[in-house]
């Protein structure tokens, strides 16, 4: 029976989620593998584990529960060890590294921010800003929609303007939120958002961070901003490629 690993935390963590439901159907019970100063949150690995919805939820849920009581280094979904002993050996071998990560991330959570344009609102915006686009749209409207070429021409102008707004608005988000955060990590790419950013936020700054998001929503009503958090610091367990967590390698 192999062992499924959810995350790594300090052995002194006050409320480890021992006994709650983990991955699998029926759910495997979560247990704790302690080794020295560290503890791993694990369960038996179900046979034929696949990234199913319920399992992804279970993984996230176990980490959420564990993270509520103390800092946890979240594993990526689907990490398996042959047995508990292997897990304990890894903890023993790399105790310094994980302790350093736990100290660095103590009291910090991840907030993921994604944004898209409200299409109608952004179209209003680019039309309001561009006399050329307004003129072309007006001409087309008078000509019963305009010829194919006229429509393509208008659409091209609009698309270019909207794309410029996407880049601009992505910067707006980053520049306004970065000062409240300790680190920022771009989310996985090609997910179709004009911005997809994860921020590492100290617990004390969470309210300020959310207020800043709120201000951006108010000042940029054409933006649809989705915030997910607090999350386990998925994007910050290892010094990220874009912006390493400060003090990570000191």
């Amino acid at each position: 029976m192999s062992t499924y690993i959810y995350g790594i935390t300090a052995g002194s963590h006050p409320s480890l989620p021992d006994g709650i439901d983990g991955v699998g159907e029926p759910a495997q019970k979560v247990r704790i593998v302690k080794e020295g100063e560290l503890a791993a949150v694990v369960s038996d690995a179900p046979e034929g584990l696949r990234p199913k919805r319920r399992d992804l939820l279970a993984h996230q849920n176990v980490l959420q529960e564990a993270g509520a009581g103390g800092t946890v280094l979240p594993m990526r979904f689907g990490s398996l060890a042959p047995d508990d002993e292997t897990v304990a050996n890894v903890l023993a071998e790399r105790v310094d590294h994980y302790q350093e990560r736990l100290r660095t991330l103590a009291g910090r959570v991840e907030y993921n921010v994604k944004a898209t344009h409200n299409e109608e609102a952004v179209l209003h915006l680019v039309m309001a800003e561009s006399p050329e686009i307004r003129a072309a749209a007006e001409a087309n409207r008078r000509a019963d929609g305009g010829s194919y070429d006229d429509r393509i021409k208008l659409g091209e102008m609009v698309a270019a303007a909207v794309q410029a707004r996407e880049a601009e608005d992505s910067e707006v988000l980053r520049q306004n939120l970065e000062p409240v955060a300790e680190a920022v990590s771009p989310g996985p790419e090609s997910t179709g958002w004009l911005a997809n950013l994860s921020f590492l936020i100290s617990g004390d700054d969470a309210a300020r961070f959310l207020e800043t998001v709120e201000q951006i929503r108010t000042s940029h009503p054409h933006l649809e901003v989705r915030v997910n958090g607090p999350l386990p610091p998925y994007s910050f367990v290892e010094p990220g490629p874009a912006e390493p967590v400060r003090a990570a390698r000191e």
Partner: peptide, 29 residues
């Protein structure tokens, strides 16, 4: 869940001593 799916699957600690279940076929996006 769908907003954080990519983080659960693409981010987080990877330890070389452990193996990962196959994600073949999963369409994250």
């Amino acid at each position: 869940l769908y907003d954080v799916l990519e983080l659960i699957l693409d981010r987080g600690l990877v330890i070389d001593a452990f193996v990962r279940v196959s994600l073949v076929g999963i369409e994250i996006l």
